[in-house]
Design a protein around this nucleic acid. Structure first.
Lengths: 225, 225
DNA sequence: CCGCTTACCTACTCTGGAGTAAGGCTACGT
DNA sequence: ACGTAGCCTTACTCCAGAGTAGGTAAGCGG
């Protein structure tokens, strides 16, 4: 109240760390950007808000990460890479196809559960823009699709000849990936379910099919999983 | 070149019909809006461009359809209604569940084929906005989901007791709807396939499941379909 | 011919927000 | 001490694009 003091009254204020190295700031900015983009979408988000959330001023963002478009692309890239890594890490090639699928699904839904914001940015925001973002995203999706397709096709060739599944592998994989994406979205609005429940629903749908499910033939993970 | 003439040099220019009744103009505006929104997304589209494409001046749009937000909502509403009607019209309750599903899928993909722009607006654009649009869209999606769920659950109860499928009907329906949406997107990039091919791929996935498909057990429509 | 309504336009205003200019502070090397 | 390099800020410029003010003209009933 009374004394204006020196401007350095709080020399070690904990809330606002000062003069951090570039590397750290870049991470903070990306984190903030993911949060803001996930809430308002690409166009709805303002660089001012990102800088606010990141606790840094706007010109720093431009200095470190470039334009708004660049920033968004960087978010997409980082989060997509993380997601794909999570899935790949969950799969072990020596398992049978259904188990691989099962592990992949759990890896995917597990990531979504832990990083809802990342998922929102990836799935909802980047599809809507027509720019270079979709490229980035599509590339990742392609990788996910061919990952799935590879599992299926290999399963097919392990057992014999040209099967119905492997002939149209890519399209089926696209449908599966899409089903996963939408189920993940649905899950955001029904968070009471656990990862295992969600993953096993999809697993049953794509492995058994409604035809089997209607007669109570369900898929269950083998003992050691 | 030489004569500025009166501004009415072309009194009956065919390209620019004049003084049309409100009803007609509203349709033209909505058509133009769907086109423009489907190309650039909600934010990317400008009212100036919509007015250009519609062949009418901006104030008319505001007079007839209200704000940009209102206009977009009107597009969503009209296209979503059309889509749902196409699906419902394709389904006949007296058929067995798998045939109903089959018809529904064909209705859906048929609509997408005929109205690619509408589909783009519905699926890609409206999800990204957080506003009242998502409401409109979600409402439609809910209806689609419960439509599917109803088919499945009824199939379940026709045959007996509480089945695996009907217990988690809504989630499975969400997954199916999502698979359809993504497959439709995928189709936009692979237009060489026919409606029947696309629809039967998804039908096989969700009805038979990979487990069956890997052993060449496929679903085929019964003779009269 | 006159006035009233409805269709329609040109030409603005005004704001949100992307991107920047210009300079300050701190730390460290010499 | 003094430069210089990197971190960081305030306080702008500037433009696209939503929305509007105010006016013109065509049809129509009297």
């Amino acid at each position: 109240m009374s004394l204006p003091d020196s401007p350095l009254a709080e020399p070690d204020k904990p809330g606002r760390a000062k003069r951090l190295p570039r590397e750290v700031r870049e991470r903070q900015i990306l984190d903030a950007a993911v949060t803001v983009f996930s809430q308002h979408g690409y166009h709805g988000a303002s660089m001012d808000e990102v800088s606010d959330v990141a606790g840094i001023s706007k010109p720093m963002i431009y200095a470190y990460l470039g334009s708004k478009e660049d920033l968004f692309a960087a978010c997409i890239h980082r989060e997509a890479t993380r997601l794909l890594e999570a899935i790949v890490a969950a799969i072990h090639a020596e398992h049978p196809a259904d188990v691989q699928l099962w592990h992949g699904l759990r890896g995917f839904f597990g990531f979504v559960e832990e990083h809802r914001e990342s998922w929102r940015v990836l799935h909802r925001q980047s599809l809507a823009q027509g720019g270079p973002f979709t490229q980035e995203l599509m590339a990742m999706r392609e990788r996910a699709i061919s990952l799935v397709a590879a599992v299926l096709v290999r399963a097919g060739s392990d057992e014999g000849v040209g099967h119905a599944a492997s002939r149209s592998g890519e399209a089926l994989a696209a449908a599966l990936v899409g089903a996963g994406e939408s189920l993940a979205d649905w899950w955001l609005d029904h968070p009471e379910e656990t990862v295992d429940i969600i993953a096993s629903r999809l697993m049953n749908l794509v492995w058994m099919g409604f035809g089997d499910l209607l007669e109570d033939r369900v898929w269950k993970p083998p003992a050691g999983a």
